[in-house]
Amino acid sequence: MKAPIPMHIPDGFLSIPVAGILWLVSLVFIFIALKKAGKEIGGNKLPLVGVLAAAIFAGQMLNFSISGGTSGHLLGAALAVLLVGPWTAVLIMTSVVAVQALVFQDGGILTLGANLFNMAVVGMAVAYFVSSLFRRWFGNSRWAILLTAFAAGWFSIFIAALAASLELAFSGTSPANIAIPAMGGVHALIGIGEGLITLGAVSLLMASKPQLIEQDSKEPVKSSAVWIAGLIFTAVLLVCSPLASSKPDGLEWVAEKLGFLIMAQDASYHIIPDYVMPGIQNEALATIAAGAIGVLIVIAVVTLLARRGKLAENK
């Protein structure tokens, strides 16, 4: 039996306030999505949304080996955004994540709000933000679309994982300096898989049904709210995470920040000397290193694709 993707937070992991607030936030977003997508999809696209949700669920079972027993999976938020637009994507991811929690117990019920927030709301907003930005920068050439697919996939996973680890930290479940490098590091790598799978799927769809991909760039989706939300999530999480990891206890950190306390060295908190528990420190370093390498690879791939894209356009 496969262990569930660590992105699904189980019950007992989040504090009640964190879980409650995120339930509320997710409900608000789903409510808006229902209103907005109602216009987008109408009656005749309802089967599409339902079956697409089933397909993304099934697609999540696709795995491919990365190395030594680790395997990459698809989340699908970016793919859904690229295929059917942001609001419909929220509904699709909501169905997938909810059924996973209700029927397969991937992720808890109380934490479902948080999981919906991470995978449906953040995943969607980030993917939409990144794809709009990239479309604006690189246009609509074949290379630009593929580049967009990759970047949307990577960022949606990475930022969603950061959100999850911040939630764990704020709940006091897992100190931020462990959760963020661990989740971030692993998902920086998993994100590359997600990016490449999204890219592969989009390139296949472009070859066989190009109108599917081009469609949503033709009709200008005026979803500035999503755009701004995506920007905010990306910025807040990217800035917050390193700061939070520099201070172990998320709640303490926030208290200090809010109270404008001087960041004093917390003497009572210490990692025990490594001769007692060998490997722990190195492990933390290793995950940070993995994260850094992941980021570097993504930057490299993105610049490479961008340059090839430019070349292709110049031809």
Binding site: G193, I197, G200, A201
Partner: peptide, 10 residues
């Protein structure tokens, strides 16, 4: 490998 998997998803 990832791209083949992407093709399967597509």
């Amino acid at each position: 490998r990832a791209q083949v998997t992407g093709g399967m998803a597509g």
